[in-house]
């Protein structure tokens, strides 16, 4: 069999809608039999946060960041029409009506399809996110890990 093509997505955004786009593309590419990697950096790390409240040992600044950022994919804001939290409620109800998979399900589906979820360790340090706060079965790396995947990627996206 021919070597698999690769799709690599850098997820920088912490918005619900942009993250949905990233995960829809990732799932589609996995269905195309690509090796798919999503490299989560900066606000994109929030998609990997567990939604339960965890209290790992943190500095004051890290605690503040932790409080101000959404805990997990389901709590992320929209990039447009946030309306103090009404926007996400509205879009989720419309999605349900149109039978579109909610973001947490898209993430589960991606894992099921062996999409590699990679967390950027440098930005984890910056934002004070600890491994125990992020989903299990993900990988950790830096820019070199992304380049290694990206250099022979058929599709490379920055979202």
């Amino acid at each position: 069999m021919a070597e698999k093509k690769k799709t690599n997505i850098i997820l920088f955004s912490g918005d619900y809608d942009k993250t949905m786009a990233a995960y829809i593309i990732a799932n589609g590419a996995a269905a195309y039999d690509h090796d798919v990697t999503i490299f989560h950096t900066f606000w994109g790390l929030n998609a990997l946060r567990k939604d339960e409240k965890l209290q790992p040992k943190k500095s004051f600044m890290e605690k503040m960041f932790g409080k101000m950022m959404p805990r997990g994919a389901n709590n992320m804001p929209l990039s447009k029409m946030q309306f103090l939290g009404m926007g996400p409620k509205m879009i989720k109800s419309v999605m349900k009506k149109h039978n579109v998979m909610p973001l947490p399900d898209l993430i589960d589906m991606a894992k099921e399809q062996d999409v590699t979820l990679l967390a950027c360790t440098m930005t984890m340090d910056l934002l004070g996110l600890k491994k125990e706060e992020l989903l299990d079965d993900i990988e950790y790396g830096g820019v070199a890990a992304y380049i290694a995947e990206g250099e022979d990627g058929a599709i490379n996206l920055f979202i």
């Binding site: 799932n27 269905a31 149109h98 998979m101 589906m109 399809q113």
Partner: peptide, 12 residues
């Protein structure tokens, strides 16, 4: 009734 990307994921 399934929306993108599910038809293609399920077909695969």
């Amino acid at each position: 009734g399934l929306a993108c990307p599910m038809p293609i994921v399920k077909t695969k």
